[in-house]
Design a binder for these strands. Sequence first.
DNA 1: TCTGGGGTCCTAGGACCC
DNA 2: TCTGGGGTCCTAGGACCC
Length: 427
Amino acid sequence: VRPPVLALVDCNNFYASCERVFQPHLEGKPILVLSNNDGCVIARSDESKALGFVMGDPYHLAKEKIKQHGVLVFSSNYTLYGHMSRRVMSTLNTFTPELEVYSIDESFLNLAGFEHRGLTAYAAEIRRTVRQWTGIPVSIGMAYTKTLAKVANRLAKKTPAANGVYDLTDPTAIDDALARVAVGDVWGVGQQSTRWLTAQGITTALMLKRADPKRIRAHMHVVGERLVAELNGVSCLHLESVTPARKGITVSRSFGRYLTDLTEINEALVAHTMRAGEKLRRGGLMAAYITVFIQTNKFSKVHPYFGDSVSTRLPFPTNYTPDLIKYAHQLLKKIYQPGFHYKKCGLMLLDLQTADLERRDFFDGRDQDREQRLMKTMDRINVTYGRKTIRFAAMGSRRPAWTTVADKVSQRFTTNWLELPTAKAGQ
DNA sequence: TCTGGGGTCCTAGGACCC
DNA sequence: TCTGGGGTCCTAGGACCC
């Protein structure tokens, strides 16, 4: 019995493409999208790639070249990207009953049962439809394992004649394809493994496919062994159409400038904690374990590096923000050392559990119903009138010292009435 | 002189992903 | 001056138990 055909649909240059949808004059121009805090390059249009801009390039080091080539630069606009992502995914859902949303710009589709339509033709139709309904260009790779579908997707992008669709279900085509892929470009092979594999003389995906799985396992553990199996057409990573429960929630940000003062850092931490609480409640969850971390700028040549983290188990699982703020603050005080130039802080909530049980009845005389109503009301106000409309005093009231930089954000075209795109009828 | 063995649970840290 | 943020999985090793 054949395993199901999997298609990996990947949006091309997703963030850059999102910017283009509502600003068509950007078509054909080099675009870069920056990370939070306008720190580094995280998305590039084809034109920018051709100019030699690299993923992860620090923005401040690229500025010269950006100016020189007239590249258009955007701060990241996650509200827009998230919304465009949902549009793409729901479009894809009309082509298959079973789909796994793998990331903001990628989905695996189960195409079993659609073979009679001709896989290449069907994929081409998916591609056309997504483009027409959302304005986002996608590439599609098909194979019998996720790892091979990833390879196929890569080839769909790299092979101009493929028209954005690459079928790797034909076993006789696989080896030729794998010979064209560097081992470091295989999904799951990162820097460490690339270094080791190369030293072993394994430089292409095909060589990795043919390597002795036991030998690979000795260095790359079961993950590496599975990878070799997947390259050999043995499916180990199955389609997960049901989103598994979240294991942790992290909120962290770099500060817009250095902070040295505990109170100021705590204001940032309180803001992050509020956000983490919102995420918890939105997912119907409570957390029983919390980690807080701080760090200075790891790239600085003038200031010494310092970073630390500390965790604690909470006396009871909670999603009540005042509880979270209290414990986060206690932990921050434990790791804060005066005298450093801090650049970032954050928290992680772990050991998440569903909030449907009344677990805290035994602990104290607190009125949980009232607490939950309070959080619900706060959440509703902050959704309706904007984030942090209602906030905790510990967050500070003036413009916070830690505010991130985002100088070049585009409009929230899809989620804000005041920022809708305008169309003009021409002659 | 000679000081067990096997199991579980938990956490930290590494590697990788987008 | 200026280098992101949020995840998952796996393994080793310590604590603990019998």
